[in-house]
């Protein structure tokens, strides 16, 4: 395993006006692994903590968020125990990050070319001219036309999809060993999406690096990922190999998710599945999915363990039986 995350807990700890401590339990024991040469798809409800998992791992949390427990082994070191200096050395060189919001990832006051040159020169000795020509080559491989000219563009002049591709170029340019992509192709048309995922896939296979792809597009998971982890309310509810999990989903949430792909939806049927997400300030004691689960029974008042299933593992009392 290239990266092993174990029992990651992250909380938002604040004081309200009456000076009472309020704790939002955002991540509640996230565990998963990423193998060499494999792509892990991280899916799940919006607000489930997918992005937060990434920011926790990379030490990018901002107060009041805090990692309260867990380990994350990457190349033999625990990321959660590293100093800020050591982490920032790893970020951008050993681990490439593609963040969810392309606009805020780009410095609005620097041209695209300058930013691509800067990330290279922060992490290694390379001449300005070499860095520039690599930047140009990188823009070509993420499918940006007229790269030489685009190097001179300001971030606000790019279309949403083009900004996204520049962010991808920034993440790939230092040849990281682990690539974390938070919704990398959201906002790209499908032909470009396919091109970028092909590029990512090729990098993972050829250089035997690992990748985490966070996405809401089950098509991306089905066609490009090897493994999948399904998150809900700060926990991984189910994980396993993609083909297996898609064929035999064991957790009720996974089943609900697979059933709501647009291809299978009918509008105007009134009640769509789901309900409000659990209140992070007052999580239920038992299964976090309990309130929405159609199969909830008496056992579900106790927290379900992660149990092995035919397709991998799932956090449900009935997973083994299904």
């Amino acid at each position: 395993m290239l990266l092993t995350v174990e029992d990651l807990h992250t909380r938002f700890i604040t004081r309200d006006l009456d000076d009472r401590v309020r704790v939002a339990e955002a991540l509640n024991g996230v565990s998963f692994g990423v193998g060499e040469g494999r792509i892990l798809g991280l899916v799940g409800e919006s607000g489930a903590g997918k992005s937060l998992t990434v920011t926790s791992l990379l030490g990018l949390l901002r107060p009041p968020a805090r990692v309260t427990a867990g380990r994350a082994l990457f190349e033999g070191r625990d990321l959660l125990a590293l100093s800020e200096a050591a982490l920032s050395e790893i970020r951008g060189s050993r681990i490439g990050l593609i963040v969810q919001s392309p606009r805020s990832a780009l410095d609005p006051l620097a041209r695209i070319g300058a930013q691509l040159v800067r990330v290279q020169r922060v992490h290694r000795r390379i001449s300005e001219a070499d860095a520039r020509s690599r930047a140009e080559a990188m823009l070509v491989s993420v499918g940006i036309p007229d790269p030489r000219r685009r190097l001179e563009a300001w971030p606000h002049e790019l279309s949403g999809g083009m900004a996204q591709r520049v962010v991808i170029a920034l993440a790939l340019i230092n040849e990281p060993h682990l690539l974390i992509a938070d919704e990398p192709t959201t906002g790209l048309d499908v032909t470009v999406q396919a091109q970028i995922l092909d590029l990512l896939h090729e990098q993972v296979r050829r250089r035997r690096i690992g990748a985490i792809v966070i996405t809401h597009d089950l098509g991306v998971v089905a066609q490009y990922c090897d493994d999948v982890a399904v998150m809900f309310a700060g926990q991984v509810m189910e994980q396993g190999a993609v083909a297996e999990v898609f064929a035999r989903p064991a957790h009720p949430y996974t089943r609900a998710l697979l059933a709501s792909v647009p291809e299978r939806l009918v509008l105007g049927t009134g009640k769509m599945l789901g309900g409000p997400p659990p209140d992070l300030y007052a999580l239920p004691r038992g299964c976090l999915y309990g309130q929405r689960c159609a199969h909830a029974a008496a056992q579900c008042a106790a927290p379900p363990p992660m149990s092995a299933t035919q397709s991998g593992a799932a956090r449900c009392h009935f997973a083994g039986l299904a």
């Binding site: 899916v43 799940g44 409800e45 919006s46 489930a48 969810q100 949403g160 919704e183 959201t186 906002g187 809401h216 089950l218 609900a256 998710l257 709501s260 792909v261 647009p262 939806l265 509008l267 105007g268 049927t269 769509m272 599945l273 789901g274």
Partner: peptide
């Protein structure tokens, strides 16, 4: 402008339903 691209499937379905309604 891409209103549902960063929504998970169940919420997306709900939003589409809402828009249709």
């Amino acid at each position: 402008d891409e209103p549902t691209s960063s929504l998970d499937l169940s919420v997306r379905a709900g939003i589409l339903d809402l828009l249709a309604e």
